[in-house]
Each structure stands twice: as C-alpha cells, then as structure tokens.
C-alpha cells in the first residue's frame, strides 16, 4: 500500500518531530552531555537531524520532504531558548539559504528571480529585527528595509521584462539553454 519512499518520509518526519519535541522539553540534554562536545547541544541536535536527513535521502525519500522537515527541525533546534533577536536572525538565515539554493539550482529563469526576492526578504527580516531589538529609538533598520523594498520592486519589474524579452527571442526560459556565449 505504501511505496518505499513515502514510508521513509513518514518515518523521517516522525523521528524529527519526536527529536524536536524532546529537545524543546529538554530531554535530549543528558544524551548530548554524555558526548561531551563543548556542550553545544543545539549544534549536536542539528547535526543529528542532518545525518538522519542524509540517511533518509539515501534510503529513497523525496528531496522536498527531507529538506522541509530537516530545515524546520534544525531551525527549531538552533533557535529554541535563544534570545528573540537570535531567533529572528536564524529564521532570516534559513530563508536566505533557501533563496541561495533556489537561485543556484532552478531551471526556470522566473523561479531564479523569485529566489532572489526571497533572499531580499530575508535581509529585510534581519534589518527590521535589528531596528526592533538593537535600536528601538531610531528605526534605522526599517528605513533601510523600505529602500530595499523599493529596489526589489524595481528589480522585479526590470528582471521580469528581461525574461520576457529573452522568451520572445529564444522561446524558452530554461536557464540551461541560455548558452549563446558558449563556444
């Protein structure tokens, strides 16, 4: 009834959820304390999640499910119990990384642009978090974010216009086929 990959995915999701819940309730601390690695429990837990993710992928689980579950688990493990500013910065780093991944791997040019928007947004979260927690009196971070918003809007308009122009000439937006300059 279950295909092998989906059962691996379900098992992986269950294990990660259990791990994260146990970590949030503090049950994992003694486990890592026995390992004696600088007492960086959050990093140990993340490493565990990553290793499990790689295992699940090798056992045939789909990449999207592994990536979503693994990154969420790692994010919670890394940010739980930290100060609010660090929580926000970690989330922003995660979104930025997702953007980088999408930008380097996407086949469709418009998807690359969407990934860039994602990265710009991650930077915005950073700036707004700084303006909230580092200098609440003058909201300099928010003003910077407003400028980024403006530039992102301009970038989206021009970028999409370029993609449309390319599509008209090449009849495709596949990033692998824009190799006119290749000799």
């Amino acid at each position: 009834m279950w295909s092998k990959s989906s059962s691996v995915v379900v098992a992986y999701v269950a294990v990660i959820s259990f791990l994260v819940c146990a970590y949030m309730c503090g049950y994992l601390t003694p486990l890592f304390a026995g390992m004696n690695i600088h007492s960086d429990y959050n990093l140990c837990c993340t490493a565990l999640i990553l290793v499990l993710g790689a295992l699940a992928y090798l056992m045939g689980a789909g990449l999207p499910a592994v990536m979503i579950t693994g990154s969420l688990g790692a994010f919670i493990a890394l940010s739980w119990g930290q100060e609010p500013l660090i929580r926000y910065l970690t989330l922003s780093a995660l979104l930025f990384t997702i953007g980088v991944y999408g930008m380097t791997t996407s086949r469709n040019a418009v998807r690359v642009l969407m990934s860039i928007e994602l990265m710009l947004n991650a930077v915005n979260i950073n700036l707004v978090a700084f303006s909230r927690y580092v200098d609440p009196g003058f909201v300099r971070g928010q003003i910077f974010a407003i400028f980024i918003l403006t530039v992102a809007a301009a970038e989206a308009a021009v970028g999409l216009a370029i993609v449309l122009a390319i599509y008209r000439n090449a009849q495709t937006v596949d990033m692998e086929k824009f190799n006119l300059l290749k000799w």
């Binding site: 890394l78 660090i86 997702i98 980088v100 580092v134 609440p136």
Partner: peptide
C-alpha cells in the same frame, strides 16, 4: 547546492551567535 546551502546556513548561524548583540 544543498551542501553549500547547509554550510552557508551553519556559517551564518555561527556568525550570529558569536556576536554579542547589545540587546535592547
């Protein structure tokens, strides 16, 4: 890309933690 992404994320996280933010 997945490898680079993971490493980038870990590096960013280390950088975030290493900085003592003047929290306010």
């Amino acid at each position: 890309a997945a490898l680079v992404g993971t490493l980038l994320f870990i590096a960013l996280y280390m950088a975030i933690l290493s900085e003592g933010w003047g929290n306010n």
